[in-house]
Design a protein around this nucleic acid. Sequence first.
RNA 1: GCCCGGAUGGCGCAACUGGCUGACGCGGUGGACUCAAAAUCCACUGCCCGCAAGGGCAUGCGGGUUCGAAUCCCGCUCCGGGCACCA
Length: 947
Amino acid sequence: MAESTAADTPAHRYSAALANEIETRWQDRWEAEGTFHTPNPVGPLSEGFEAMAGKAPRYILDMFPYPSGAGLHVGHPLGYIGTDVYARYLRMTGHNVVHAMGYDSFGLPAEQYALQTNTHPRVTTEANIANMRRQLRRLGLAHDARRSVSTTDTEFYRWTQWIFLQIFGAWYDTEADRARPVEELVAALDAGERQPDEGTNDTGKPWSELDASERRAVVNRHRLAYLADVPVNWCPGLGTVLANEEVTADGRSERGNFPVYRRNLKQWMFRITAYADRLIDDLDQLDWTDAIKNQQRNWIGRSTGARVRFATDADYIEVFTTRPDTLFGATYMVVAPEHPLVGALTADEWPEGTPAAWTGGEPTPKAAVTAYQAAASRRSELDRQAADKAKTGVFTGSYATNPVNDEQIPVFVADYVLMGYGTGAIMAVPGQDQRDWDFAEAYDLPIIRTVQPTEGFDGKAFTGEGPAINSGFLDGLEVGPAKEAIIAWLVEHGHGTATVQYKLRDWLFSRQRYWGEPFPIVFGADGEARALPDDQLPLELPPMEDFTPTTSDDEDSDPEPPLGRVTDWTTVELDLGDGVETFRREVNTMPNWAGSCWYELRYLDPTNDERFVDPENERYWMGPDERKPHGGTDLYVGGAEHAVLHLLYARFWHKVLFDLGHVSSSEPFHRLFNQGMIQAHVYRDDRGFPVPAAEVVEGDDGTWTHQGQPVSRELGKIGKSLKNVVTPDEIFEQYGTDTLRLYEMFTGPLDQSRPWDSTATVGMFRLLQRIWRVVIDEDSGAVRVADDATPSDETQRVLHRTIASVREGMEGLRSNTSIARITELTNHLTSAYPDGGVPRPVAEALVLLLAPLAPHVGEELWSRLGHDETITYAPYPVADEAWLVADTVELPVQVNGKVRGRITVAADASEADIEAAGRAAVAAQLDGRTVRKVIVVPAKMISFVVG
RNA sequence: GCCCGGAUGGCGCAACUGGCUGACGCGGUGGACUCAAAAUCCACUGCCCGCAAGGGCAUGCGGGUUCGAAUCCCGCUCCGGGCACCA
């Protein structure tokens, strides 16, 4: 008999039902009135801009989501709520704020979901977007809906293709240190002002003697987007190749966990390496956390050092080293098993006296090397994680000459040297490198220290700083000067050069899947890539019945892009300047990163059909100024998992657009903020399987049981597989959106992960009830504020202190503290005015302070207080300095650092007065002891030091 | 192994720039309302000793600087995230 009678609760209490009624009503009104429409300076969205003319522009951005079919759980909206609170706060503090939400809807996840549900990705994508829009709308997010774009919209990817052509149409001028249009390259080549870059012309003929096709080939090899036959990550299980960044350390696909194989394939590449230095250096002036900056720096992996040539009988071996100063300690060399010189270096027979351990038990070097190469390649296919770090290798039978002392040092093949980094060969310096030390110990090779270890050093290889020893003319020099000296010597004698090495590789940009942007590229009879003219954009993805990728578990299978099967689309008749010819279309598609590399620009001018963004709109919202030297969005909030991939790629595209003069900002995101994750408890039974979290009961003794069986508890991600999903809808139903928003903001600063605790949400609901009660009489529904009352001095002080600290929390994206201060104000008003009659200015300030956090309650109370206009643009309360200073202050009185008493003195009391009051307060403590020192910090504390 | 974070009551967290540790909320205890419960409201709530007044101990651990340290310095431990035979 649990039926409750309505008479129990006051008719006008803030209840879940009332909250839901208020929320849907205001959401409808916001939509109908276009409350969050933000005007641009120019173009179709410029209506109403004059009214904003005096306001400073702010661009608040969220990382846009994949429209997955699974729907939202309470962890998803954390960042969205955080940016919404901040953007609403900025609107109320006199800014013109652009804040929108789009959908990253191309790519593997969308396609895989479509395959699972056996529906065309266009259909599932659009249904998922509609569902997600509905869920996000229910959160009351103040987005300009007109600016919502989806990367799969034809009018969006038209410009993705256009930007690709801009990149394709550019080359990197290393002297000017920026990208320039290839037309300028061609003009310079025609005029004889410059020669083709190294490695771009293998005809051996000068530019002037090349025919049109040969010239195209030369130019194509300069471009920032180019086709190359390169070692790629071929993933037969996904039927596509993957970027380095998409392959895990143990050689599997990040998505789907399929094995990935290295093989050579002709693929589209972006010359992101040309930007390596700028991508590192420009981080300095961005407002990002050091964690993310470091991750980007480490990924790019710039290291300075030298290239050194070692002569051998066959050819010279070039190595890269960051420690050329240790050259005298190089006692052997190692080349990677895949190194092209391995064959030439392998001797016919073992030299006299070759130790048995160096031969791998084989009769000849050739047999040993071949066996080792085979083993190494097999090893790379297997789980590299399981491989122990023991060093293995075989002797090639040949020797190299250390240029600095003419020592003959043996050359080994070993897989601890990677072909993919540096030159694929090293000089081994066991005295100063632990890996070389390990190998030298295993193969009984000499170890020479060339840097004096610090005193007390008892390790093996010494990698620290110290004076050079056993190093001829370098002896006595510290590491830095020794490097300079040896590099000068190497250059002078023609044995090497100073150089900079990067871990970053060029970006593999093509995929053999259906659901991506088609490349606006065609191939003519000579096989050279040609740009589709801009007026043929968008190049639409042709409809396909069966878009299944050709997957395989055979590593020797070949990629077969689905678009290759649309034969009437792949062949096209075009006139590209030499009359109508037959061309073949590129059948690869772009990876899902493409759209996310520039979507933030499209939000600024979503309906512009002349340009991807009007320069004036871009400059207004993202242009550089004294706050942000590179320009970019004022805030970008998203998960830390995008620290390298998306953020690096997007910065690269943006920089190309900047170099070509299409945008005024040289960085896309000025202030970056990684929101934390909302975790939830996972309960497991004795077999370790998760049990439904909602069915677990907590015992009095702090243990948990599920259906009577004890279960363990840990924190984990929220997800179906862990059976701990809590949906926003459950919270809407129980308390409403405003409670959910407050709760998510209250549990901690935005960048911090925190566990979800459904029982704790009620605290925020109670807060809203109390605020409601400050304004509304629960029984009659009438407004119960006093229009003509004057706030007491105490109320004024509480109010203005609250305003000051609420603003501080808002600015710092720590609205948890703002909510605490609002709660304190509410508690004060509740006890100071138990029967209502809170002075109107105070009640209105409370509602305004709350509005960014709980906008529906904000709007409703604002309106009931008699305001016709939305609260969205109402001015946020400003603290009056006069009320921030108190007349009297309470000070702690310390004796020997411990608080022994308190005194209340005038705020401007003299030190003498404070001391006198302090002595009186702790007279018992001071009695009979000598006061050696008195420290008075005015308005803070007083401390006695006694003997 | 390297690079970033982090550790404060039963829980989430707060504490400006070295100056009252634990604001605010959850939970808990007691009370009001109710036939009763839910909801709501009020009070108390770091730990230990004590009837009390009061005292002692407390910000992961060990040192240090200081009149005074959650905060600064040195050395650790544990947890989270990232990278990793990168020469």
